[in-house]
Amino acid sequence: MATLEIKDLHVSVTADETSKEILKGVDLTIKSGETHAIMGPNGSGKSTLSYAIAGHPKYQITSGSVTLDGEDVLEMSVDERARAGLFLAMQYPVEVPGVSMSNFLRTAATAVRGEAPNLRHWVKEVKGAMADLDIDPAFAERSVNEGFSGGEKKRHEILQLGLLKPKIAILDETDSGLDVDALRVVSEGVNRYKESGEAGVMLITHYTRILKYIEPDFVHVFANGRIVESGGRELADQLEEQGYVKYTGNQEAATVA
């Protein structure tokens, strides 16, 4: 049983020597077994929230706290956060030329699990996980994300999610850029991870369509750097009907036109 607790989180980014506040007091608690959908229009700060929790150096925490099972996440380095059980599936996964996917996965699993996985079991585990996500085995020998299509990158993010089995997973617009088949495959991957019952999920998305595949327990509307409304599934349905106009004053649909 794990709990990620975010309290009154304020985050700024500095560009051209001027600091701009993006997150303006975020409060959110995610427990194992819960799936929280964070829905908001573009530019509302959803991605900033995910990167700030993961510890990206570009974002400065100006006040507030983030704890995982009572431990201060903000005091941890990026890799310590991951080893503590946090995982961020990125919207734009980074290419790492010359580092093979298989080497990367094994190095990451060794770091997160605290010991090198047994080679024979590991090969089987990776093969199985790749097959589950319809990933061609040839990808294991390719450089991390290099030359992958958008959909291939997302599948590999979910592959890592399944292998690293974090306590809390943050999925940052994992649905963006996916066609229907890829969305289904990726969503099934997330659901397999959830089936363990030990997993807490923060699902960040602009659109409601991924919620047809991944059932949220809670839906939060994110606007202007904070959560402005929380509810259940019905809130997503309402967004589907009405868009974000109520929260932003702008017409911005929550469905793909």
Binding site: G55, P57, S77, M90, V96, G98, V99, A108
Partner: peptide
């Protein structure tokens, strides 16, 4: 050094020093 590569590897639990080595080794790999 590409800090985004470093962040990505670290976000998967790989300690910074090891992540740096992976990136440099990858750079020379070809």
């Amino acid at each position: 050094f590409d800090d985004e590569q470093l962040f990505y590897l670290q976000a998967r639990g790989i300690p910074e020093e090891q992540a740096r080595r992976l990136v440099v080794r990858g750079f020379f790999h070809e």
